[in-house]
Nucleic acid binder design. Structure first.
Lengths: 331, 331
DNA sequence: CTGAAAGCGCTTACAG
DNA sequence: CTGAAAGCGCTTACAG
């Protein structure tokens, strides 16, 4: 491994000068500059980032902690984050917390000990609040919020409106026996959507029927079975998210129900897959790409000492597709 | 940020002793040890990983470069890798190359400058060979191979057999007009599967019909349209992978074909989604979890100076499901 | 067992 | 414009 000293020796200058040439951090006599550039080329010298980062106390690394590395929603989010980081000259270290509080803490710890410049956290556990406070580097929350959000900045979509819109849409489609598969109550997103859903129930004077379900397809399969057994005359289902909608579709189809003729179905997220699935799934869109982008923007503003908005809520949107059918009469 | 000096001062010992206590790297008088432990607790001291890694020239970080961060196959692979890294006490930095050679090189560069201990590379471009040779840290290939594999160690599944099995299965299902959607020719996986497919064609004396298709659903949609237009009497399709199978299903269904009655369909990979899809997709399974695990095992053996096997090929397996129907007569 | 010293490979005041 | 020096925060020979 060739170091800055080797380059300096070869070029007949001091390491300081090599550094200045590399980083363009001061004027350097053009003859020496050329000698240095030549020496760099000859030796194939690549500056050691670790040494630089030790001195600078910054690594230009952003840590991203996702609850589940195999969940398409988080992958699409991570994709958007990665793209934006790249544009801004940051690197990304992706950590998987597996929905495990201990692992989340461990990851935050490691990240800050690695001189990461900031962390984008997608979590659920309110116990993390303490950890975030103790963390010496900027942390923001994405997709979920902890507490009121007045302390830790967050980016998320308008889950409350999403909950409302999903329910209103099914009502507009003529459904009378609607079951909401709520996300886990420990997630703010699920609580907010649930709130939206029940508010509509109250306004429209229909009884709220809910079944809690994890945001993944395994549990979706299980809860769909349970749902149809407990509520056999269901004619509309609000799935916890698109993956769960896919599970529901599978279970119902197996049991001989037709969608949307017998039971209408709406998801949440608008992951790419929801459009690719057959039939295409009606869903509530979260602006995933924008949210990821904004997360990086807010975090880098934070890192670089600029003012940031603490509460960033993005509007959601109904994407009517093939698993629901709007009644013209109801319009 | 409290440093090792602060702890040392508080405990009334030298920084060296603190280091020895933390790392359990030498015997320390038990009274001093206790004082140090106490001081660490009081100050909440967390050792700086960057400093440690500068001295040790190792960060216990493994870099993983995936061609597409949003592709479920790579995500499942990354999930398996992450789990195994975690067990072995390594951390993982996930990089997205976006199928871009320049970005791949840049990522390899950054990783080695960050003192990463090794790299798991999922790439395609043979031009990367040069870069791997120049890279000062261990690199292995996963899912794909470059060159003959005698130079760069690789882990992959038996694509050739997979190509054979897919074709043999469709023939056993009674298909007569089979089209193979081959993956991009620049990928070793695609070339090997194609070879398996054509070998079966030759043996069974049927004409090979192929259409090249990227490994993603966007192109799958496009190529499925093209396929059915060019070969309207197709009765069996070997999709490039499961995502493409999903695209094909969508396009054919839209056009009124029934699967498997009119056209049978087989995918590749056995990503989770293939089972969750309705109908469940017949596919060739790659042992994703095992491959990810083995990649970490081989890489860490390499890093830690143990002997490694350069060619690691995992067997594939036919998973018959609902998009194909085996003819009993043909058995 | 333990401390002072040197060193990992950079960067940046500081002097000149 | 440029070099010698100090320092980023650790770890580990080296001496004692």
């Amino acid at each position: 491994m060739t170091s800055i000293r080797d380059v300096a020796k070869l070029a007949g200058v001091s390491p300081a000068t090599v550094s200045r040439v590399m980083n363009n951090t001061a004027n350097v006599d053009s003859v020496k500059r050329q000698r240095v550039e030549q020496a760099i080329k000859e030796t194939g010298f690549k500056p050691n980032e670790v040494a630089r980062s030790l001195y600078k106390k910054s690594s230009r690394i952003i840590g991203v902690i996702v609850p589940n590395i195999e969940n398409p929603f988080f992958n699409e989010l991570a994709g958007a984050i990665e793209e934006e980081c790249d544009k801004k000259g940051y690197r990304l270290t992706l950590c998987n917390s597996n929905n495990d509080l201990e692992k989340e803490k461990r990851n935050m710890n490691l990240l800050s000990r690695m001189n990461a410049d900031g962390i984008i956290l997608m979590t659920n556990q309110k116990e993390i609040k303490e950890e975030v406070r103790k963390c010496q580097i900027p942390v923001i929350m994405l997709d979920r919020q902890v507490g009121t959000g007045s302390e830790i900045a967050y980016i998320q979509s308008d889950h409350y409106m999403g909950g409302r819109m999903a329910m209103e849409h099914l009502l507009d489609c003529g459904c009378r026996n609607i079951v909401q598969m709520s996300g886990p109550n420990r997630f703010s997103s699920a609580r907010q959507r649930f709130q939206g859903y029940t508010d509509v129930c109250r306004e429209r004077e229909v009884t709220a029927v809910t079944l809690e379900c994890e945001y993944d397809y395994e549990d979706g399969l299980k809860k769909a079975e349970e749902l149809i057994e407990r509520y056999p005359d269901t004619d509309g289902i609000i799935a916890a998210n698109d993956m769960v909608a896919i599970s529901v579709y599978k279970v119902l189809t197996k049991k001989g129900y037709r969608i949307p003729q017998d039971i209408q179905l709406i998801g949440f997220d608008n992951i790419n897959l929801s459009r690719l699935f057959t039939p295409e799934i009606t869903t509530i869109e979260q602006p995933i790409a924008q949210m990821g982008q904004e997360a990086v923007k807010v975090l880098t503003d934070y890192i670089e000492g600029r003012e940031i908005r603490r509460q960033n809520v993005f509007p959601v949107r109904l994407i009517p597709r093939e698993t629901t059918v709007e009644k013209p009469a109801n319009k």
